[in-house]
Simulated scan of single mutants.
Amino acid sequence: MSSAIAMSRNSRMGSLALLAAGALAISACSSKAPKELPPQPGEAPVAGNQQPSEPMGPQPGSQADFAAKMMGADTIYFDLDQYDIDAMDQQALRRQAEWLMQYPNKRATIEGHADERGTREYNLALGERRANAARNYLVSLGVNGARINTVSYGKERPVALGSNEQAWAQNRRAVTVTID
């Protein structure tokens, strides 16, 4: 029986040695907590003790900045077969002019559009008159005309599909897009 006791003791000693080796290995892998935690995913790292600034918005002077500041005023709308600038259009174009004057190196293109009614040629000509009316108003507000191009898409690029007054009203428009 003494040999059975010796084997049991050796087996326990081996188990204890294995347990001690495992504990030693685990403790060797552990490290101190870092003094500063890494930023959360998507956050920009902040140097030193600076506080993070407000969330980044669109780059100032970009098309995204223009669209955000205009909040829909980058588009003006027209009545059927019309290209005159009404009071609401004037207000939107004043906002556009202010932005363009704030960024004097930015250029813009005004896109003229029409609804689906009428021939292709008629709608291209009407879209051109609408774009030019918007451009001329911006120039009258002090924006350098050399910075503004116009293009007519006629009825080729509708924003609203449908053959009803609601869709047609959304498609009779001039849209200002800034370019670099």
Rank of each mutant, 00 (worst) to 15 (best):
V159Q: 06
G61N: 05
A114M: 00
A44T: 07
Q102R: 12
A134G: 02
I5H: 11
S53D: 13
A28L: 08
P39I: 00
G57E: 08
Q96Y: 01
L80C: 12
M71F: 10
R9C: 14
E36K: 14
L93A: 02
L141H: 09
M7G: 13
H113I: 02
R129D: 10
G142L: 03
A114E: 08
D115A: 04
N49A: 15
M88C: 03
N123W: 05
E36N: 13
R107G: 05
S53M: 01
Q40H: 11
A87T: 02
R117A: 08
N10A: 14
L141E: 00
N136W: 00
Q102G: 11
T176A: 11
R129V: 05
S8I: 11
A174Y: 03
N164Q: 04
N164P: 05
N171L: 00
K69N: 11
E98C: 07
E111V: 14
A47F: 11
L80G: 00
A131V: 06
L138M: 03
L37T: 05
R94N: 13
D65G: 02
A87E: 10
V139E: 09
I76R: 03
D79G: 15
T119D: 03
V139M: 00
I76D: 06
L93H: 01
K32N: 13
A23L: 12
A6Y: 13
S140F: 12
Q170G: 09
N149K: 05
T119K: 03
G22N: 09
V151C: 02
A169T: 05
P41S: 11
R117P: 03
S8A: 14
D89C: 13
P158A: 07
P45R: 10
A33G: 09
T75S: 10
